[in-house]
Design a binder for these strands. Structure first.
Lengths: 211, 211
DNA sequence: AGTTGTAGTTAATAGCATTAACTCTGATGA
DNA sequence: TCATCAGAGTTAATGCTATTAACTACAACT
């Protein structure tokens, strides 16, 4: 088997370049600013040439969303594997988000009413959740069960591993929603004017999580 | 002083109609789907005629954002004035959001990098926060101060009323961020597949708030 | 060496926002 | 009452945007 790749390799190369330009545009001016025309101009190509690499604007965006999820999942898993505790994990995610806020919003921002992410993308999303649940399984189960805990007992089919306690699932959900709550408002600039440090609020919110 | 209004009244009437069509479009297909062309068609007008009423697409969006903030502030204040407790307040906000998710995202969704809301709009946003702080001042101050609490002591100039305790401010922030965390993920559909009831998660998250 | 697929082109279509220049009409002041 | 003036609405034009179709040229493979 010789190098049957040169054609395919070039293709992947160009696909990557297109995505890079797209990422830059989104990072600078948001998703609405993503323009195939602008990308083509930057690459010294004509616009229709881009259609050789992506079916259209939507497929390009979908690819970017998938990449973003992949990057987040890898980052979170790497941190968890190297023994980061929940607080450290939270700050790893925050750092990832702050490095490129629009990438975070690409994943967790305003949804487009019609749009449904392809199955492989939601699978990656679940990966993140699985890591969070695992990270939360270190702490034990609570002695007193809250209403939601009881509710979760009978609504946790979506969790892959049966071995993990419902308390861990519940804490993972708290972790995720609390972190996202602070982080998304911070990234969206809703705290500007209020001069406190969002990182400290996160610390506080997650400290209470252990209770 | 006679009826100097007919002209001005008609103007306000049309401005309202334009906004209504805009709201419908956004509710159905998101902000990117907002099209002046479509609005003009629905109103049997030509597109440039709309420019008599709004400087352009951006000013129309700004007006919608202001209206959304106004509606939320009024809703929250009304609930608070009629003696709703924190949990009830949370569900009032959730109901408001679920009635028109895209309106919620218009306010708290993905930000446009360049965009800064006009001062009068951020003022309304502060109104909401003030109500939340007041609602949280009913509960007393905690005996033990967390790190963030201490931090907040010296970073609360943005709070109008000096009489309210820092604990109330901290709880208001927790309330807001926890609610937004769950709500925005729910509205964005990130819980679909996980079959639990987000309302119960909110109850749980806010129950822990009292601690 | 000829065939075939792929990258790239040009040309065309259609939708979008925005501005300029114009017309008409209803209210207002002399 | 009539002239004026402002505002609503029009048409026309500009310049973006994405998308599709039809074509060309080249490079790989048989």
């Amino acid at each position: 088997m010789t190098e049957q790749a040169p054609r395919e390799r070039y293709r992947e190369q160009v696909r990557g370049e297109i995505k890079q330009h797209a990422r830059n545009q989104i990072a600078e001016a948001g998703l609405p600013a993503l323009s195939l025309t602008a990308i083509a101009k930057q690459m010294s190509m004509t616009v229709p040439a881009l259609y050789r690499y992506y079916r259209g604007r939507d497929e390009l965006i979908t690819a970017l969303i998938r990449d973003a999820f992949r990057s987040l999942a890898d980052t979170v898993r790497a941190a968890a594997d190297s023994g980061a505790d929940l607080l450290a994990l939270a700050h790893v995610i925050r750092d990832w988000a702050k490095a490129d806020p629009q990438r975070y919003f690409l994943i967790y921002g305003t949804p487009v009413p019609g749009y449904h992410a392809p199955p492989d993308t939601t699978a990656i999303s679940n990966e993140v959740m699985e890591v969070l649940i695992q990270a939360n399984s270190a702490l034990g189960e609570p002695e007193s069960a809250t209403t939601f805990h009881v509710h979760l007992e009978t609504h946790r089919e979506w969790v892959d591993s049966d071995t993990v306690g419902t308390g861990a699932v519940r804490r993972a959900l708290s972790f995720w929603t609390r972190l996202h709550g602070v982080l998304s408002l911070e990234l969206a600039g809703h705290f500007t004017g209020m001069k406190f440090d969002p990182a400290l609020l996160i610390d506080d919110e997650l400290a209470e999580l252990k209770a």
